[in-house]
Write a protein that binds this DNA or RNA. Structure first.
Length: 826
RNA sequence: GCGGGCGUAGCCGAACUGGCAUAGGCGCCAGACUUAGGAUCUGGUGAGCGAAAGCUCGUGAGGGUUCAAGUCCCUCCGCCCGCACCA
């Protein structure tokens, strides 16, 4: 009996896969393709079993698709630019590139050790100059089209990361990377006009039928499309003030206006007011309130009267203009009409400052009084006390009142979005240099295409102080203007690394291409991505950017479709001791130790068997022994039958004993189950249960299979098992396959096909219920008719006993399932 | 507050369109084989009652629809995730 030595087996097959380049693929129009993608990992150092889970899922699907005859692209690369490398440089004095390359080498070794089916010739690292040069190329294209632009704007600054952040990356006023509170700064920065695509990003969600609804929902919320109207209120002694509202139907109930303390016109409005100094002091206090708490509505509503009045264009009413902390400059126009009767925020504010509350929408069958209200009424109803617009259903009022504003020229229907343009400048070194120059004479000048790439310089000082190290490299900063040849200063901001990950899946198709970011022919063949597996935390960062990027490329004429990913599959997190496993929590389990003790196949099988891939998985060191045992059982099973099995010829003998029929049936049922579990349902864990059942069944029957035909059946069962398990435990299965006398690599071998005739049960055991309780079982032939089953059920002794003295009211026969008898005392 | 998800044995989890709840694994118990076992194999393992056949209860709680509910509907509880003064 031979021993299962996973170190030998796994290293041998890993070597073979590498030497025979078995996972390398090319465009082959004669075969159907499958593009199986996992999210680009950041090379932080060690991978933990959380990452491993992601890659196990795609590896099972990739190997399965191979065996189903697809031409499978399952590439991997590295999200290799970004802050941690630079922080490591500051801390330890290693260059970010060196740190990154070392980490990549280490992680690559781990991935190879896990036996994943990657075409390594397509490996891409975004810190390769040949990668990021295309970031620069895209940037120049976008600059030409006006998609990239530079603008001064209030932006989010992370004091700990020493750089600005995009809106998406500072949700809840917290830095997505380090969770520091971000500050607002007014800076000149580079943006991408993602807002040009906001409606497409929403509308094209219709195409994303294989994306989880919660991801689409998160994206919809983030884009935050809101339909309403813009109305200009005249300001006494000043220019009109524009507000945005979704409830123009309540405008007759506006009893004051409120503007953000940060509103650009605030100085003008308070200028010359009585008590100006006091007002200014109050404003300063409001502005100093914690930004996050203010945005989250956690601070009490406060404000100050500016001393000025506006005029409601619908009724000519004069209303005071207040500055209020609950009005945010970042949304709409930064000014609102306040309708306390119909908006809870306005209501709270009005009560605090004694401002009038006037009801103008009456709910059906009620007559609300502003002075009596305990809270705002925000529902639907009929307009009242609204002049010419009285007595209308409020949705109708919105339509008519908007029309009125348009006719009179003081307002119009308008749509507001929460999405902001993508701020891509970063004041850090380890990113793609933005390819522009600032000439003393010509101003901002793009680097010419011929001068790409603009390469990150060697020898930058990583001190952690004094801003971006790029600023301190004269050979980088000092340049010639491509237009006039005069002195120019190079832009030292680098790009957000989310740019790198917005299009890497195109680069995989032609990673060495010199004259373009990717080969259009290859895109035509491989795209769209059939399956994209990764963490849910990217629902509105990476995945919105990536969708935008493809649309932008389509508008550049580079691709002819709008959405890159057919099916998105967010895998569940791995937890340990009830918490998400992560480096920052310090509760990671490294695959290396597990592999050293159990082998890669056991780790893979365990991770996949314990929970469905989309659900959270609680890591447990104990239950891994279940996977280990299954592998040992399969190993020994093949081992003890290898000689008898190898001796039998292909299928010939007739199958006649009960044991033979039982095992054949189980074999074909298992093929059906596993195929469906992987292909249709992605229930990768239940397939493992099916493996166990088949092994159990083989062991139960093996002693009764020593005839010629028995050995044939046994061979079919064992070989099917090896084929079915191959996506999960490829080293083991390749080894067993070879021992079983085959030459071919398993990925090249066809997936087994079930014969439904063989898989079908000969007889069916059906439960018989009497008044909802199972009282007996009957065994009927497969082909029984309903009447036959019905008679059998009524004749079953235990059923008869329960029907004693009862009148049968109804008999429901569900063929193949059960019989349900309803009765009552007669 | 709004939106989404989840809640099944001691633990992880099965149960596709309503159809015998608890497949498979872990753990535990017993037995076999063994110099030995943390190896392997076999059997058992939801709760209560019972000598047994069997009966009753049982999918977070309560109600409903149905011949039949883990699954559908209503009310509530708990946990997780997302959004949140968005005008």
């Amino acid at each position: 009996m031979s021993e299962y030595r996973f170190e030998d087996i796994e290293s041998r097959w890993q070597r073979r896969w590498s030497e025979t380049r078995v996972f390398e693929v090319d465009v082959d129009v004669s075969r159907p393709k499958f593009y199986c993608l996992e999210m680009l990992p950041y090379p932080s150092g060690d991978i933990h079993v959380g990452h491993v889970r992601n890659y196990c899922i795609t590896d099972v699907v990739a190997r399965f698709k191979w065996m189903r005859g697809f031409n499978v692209l399952h590439p991997i690369g590295w999200d290799a630019l970004g802050l941690p490398a630079e922080n490591a440089a500051i801390k330890r004095g290693v260059h970010p590139e060196q740190w990154t390359r070392q980490n990549i080498a280490g992680m690559k070794r781990q991935l190879v050790r896990l036996g994943f089916s990657y075409p390594w010739s397509r490996e891409v690292a975004t810190c390769d100059t040949e990668y990021y040069r295309w970031n620069q190329w895209f940037f120049l294209k976008m600059l030409e089209k006006g998609v990239a632009y530079r603008s001064k704007a209030p932006v989010n600054w992370c004091p700990s990361c020493h750089t600005v952040l995009a809106n998406e990356q500072a949700q809840g006023c917290e830095c997505w990377r380090c969770h520091s509170a971000v500050e607002e700064r007014e800076l000149d920065q580079w943006f991408l006009r993602i807002t040009d695509y906001q409606d497409q990003l929403l509308d094209d969600m219709r195409q994303l039928t294989a994306w989880p609804e919660r991801v689409l929902l998160q994206q919809r919320n983030w884009i935050g499309r809101s339909e309403g109207a813009e109305i200009d209120f005249m300001v006494e002694g000043g220019a009109p003030l524009r507000i945005f509202t979704t409830r123009v139907d309540t405008i007759f109930g506006a009893t004051f206006m409120a503007i953000s303390p940060e509103h650009p016109r605030i100085e003008e409005l308070i200028g010359g007011a009585s008590g100006e100094a006091c007002i200014r002091q109050d404003l300063a206090r409001l502005r100093a309130q914690d930004r996050r708490a203010r945005q989250a509505g956690e601070v009490e509503k406060e404000g100050v009267f500016t001393g000025r009045y506006a005029v409601n264009p619908y009724n000519g009413e004069r209303i005071p203009i207040w500055a209020a902390n609950f009005v945010l400059m970042g949304y709409g126009t930064g000014a609102i009409m306040s309708v306390p009767a119909h908006d809870q925020r306005d209501f709270e504010f009005a009560r605090k400052y004694g401002l009038p509350v006037r009801v103008v929408i009456q709910p059906a069958g009620e007559n609300l009084d502003g002075d009596m209200l305990a809270e705002a009424y925000e529902g639907t109803g009929v307009t009242s006390a609204t002049g010419d617009f009285s007595g209308l259903r409020n949705d109708e009022a919105i339509r008519l009142m908007t029309e009125h504003a348009e006719k009179r020229g003081f307002g119009r229907a308008a749509v507001t979005y929460r999405l902001k343009d993508w701020l891509i400048s970063r004041q850090r070194f380890w990113g793609t240099p933005i390819p522009v120059l600032y000439c003393e004479k010509d101003g901002m000048v793009p680097v010419s295409y011929d001068d790409l790439p603009v390469v990150l310089p060697k020898g930058a000082p990583f001190t952690g102080e004094g801003g971006n190290p790029l600023d301190k490299v004269p050979s980088f900063v000092e340049a010639r203007c491509p237009r006039c040849g005069g002195r120019a200063r190079r832009e030292t901001d680098t790009m957000d690394t989310f740019i790198d990950s917005s299009w890497y899946f195109y680069r995989y198709l032609s990673p060495c291409k010199q004259d373009g970011p990717f080969d259009p022919e290859a895109v035509r063949y491989w795209f769209p991505i059939d399956l994209y597996v990764g963490g849910i935390e990217h629902a509105i960062l990476h995945l919105v950017y990536a969708r935008f990027w493809t649309k932008m490329m389509r508008d550049l004429g580079l691709v002819d479709f709008a959405e890159p990913v057919v099916r998105l599959f967010p895998q569940g997190m791995v937890h340990k001791e009830g918490e998400v496993m992560s480096k920052s929590r310090g509760n990671t389990v490294a695959p290396d130790e597990v592999i050293a003790e159990y082998g890669a196949d056991t780790l893979r099988l365990y991770i996949l068997s314990v929970a469905p891939p989309e659900m959270a998985l609680e890591w447990s060191d104990e239950s891994i022994s279940g996977a280990q045992r299954l592998i040992h059982r399969v190993w020994r099973l093949v081992d003890r039958h290898i000689e008898t099995i190898a001796a039998v010829s292909a299928f010939s003998a007739s199958v006649d004993s009960q044991a033979e029929r039982d095992l054949r049936r189980k074999t074909h049922q298992t093929i059906q189950r596993v195929t469906r579990d992987i292909e249709e349902r992605m229930h990768l864990n239940t397939a493992v249960a099916a493996f166990s059942e088949l092994v159990n069944e083989i062991q139960r029957l093996e002693d009764r299979l020593d005839s010629e035909s028995g050995r044939v059946v046994l061979r079919e069962a064992v070989e099917s098992l090896v084929l079915l398990m191959n996506p999960y435990t490829p080293h083991l299965c390749e080894e067993l396959w070879k021992r079983l006398g085959h030459q071919e690599d398993l990925v090249r071998h066809a997936w087994p096909v079930a014969d439904p005739e063989i898989a079908r049960e000969e007889t069916i055991e059906m439960a018989v219920q009497v008044n909802g309780k199972v009282r007996g079982h009957i065994v009927v032939p497969q082909a029984s008719g309903e009447e036959e089953i019905r008679q059998g059920a009524l004749a079953e002794p235990k059923v008869r006993a329960h029907l004693e003295g009862q009148e049968v009211l109804r008999v429901v026969v569900v063929p193949g399932r059960l019989v349900s008898i309803a009765s009552r005392r007669s």
